[in-house]
């Protein structure tokens, strides 16, 4: 089936099998390998991208369902040497170790802060419940999100 999807600012047209998951199309179809797969049960959230501005698990969307939509991946969050404040905050607060969950964590954080610019610690923790990390124990991820909120002018409660 023919689809047309805008990904990180470029419109891609492609023929895909209906069974193709959005994450597989991103990775193998158009080489957006910054978005990764961590599970097959929708638990880990590593594949989180923004679909028309909202966070979704790209393993749980068919590529054909994204037809006509806009996708933002970790690779489209900032350009070149520029850093998105969420990326800056994760580095500054050591919010990542192996980095495999990071694309999903960062994209979920972008969504979380767009909805709630000044989240409390509890709201941060609940807001990230769809993303698993095995390295950090979440302590520094939570700090990163609070710091990102601060950088973006919201601040954490």
């Amino acid at each position: 089936m023919r689809i047309s999807v805008s990904v990180d600012g470029t419109v891609y047209e492609d023929d895909v099998e209906p069974r193709t998951l959005l994450v597989h199309w991103l990775r193998q179809g158009i080489g957006k390998v910054g978005t990764v797969v961590g599970c097959d049960t929708s638990n880990c959230g590593a594949c989180t991208v923004l679909l028309d501005g909202r966070s979704v698990k790209s393993c749980s969307v068919l590529a054909v369902q994204a037809d006509g939509s806009t996708v933002t991946t970790i690779q489209g969050l900032s350009t070149g040497e520029e850093w998105h404040p969420v990326q800056t905050a994760f580095k500054e607060c050591h919010g990542l170790q192996c980095g495999y969950c990071t694309p999903g964590m960062v994209m979920s954080t972008v969504d979380l802060l767009s909805e709630n610019p000044s989240p409390s610690e509890a709201e941060i923790r609940e807001g990230l419940e769809g993303n698993l990390c095995r390295c950090t124990g979440y302590h520094n991820i939570v700090k990163s999100v609070a710091y990102a909120a601060e950088l973006m002018g919201g601040g954490s409660r």
Partner: peptide
Amino acid sequence: VADPQIRHR
């Protein structure tokens, strides 16, 4: 229900 990503879809 589930988590924010799932609630979006």
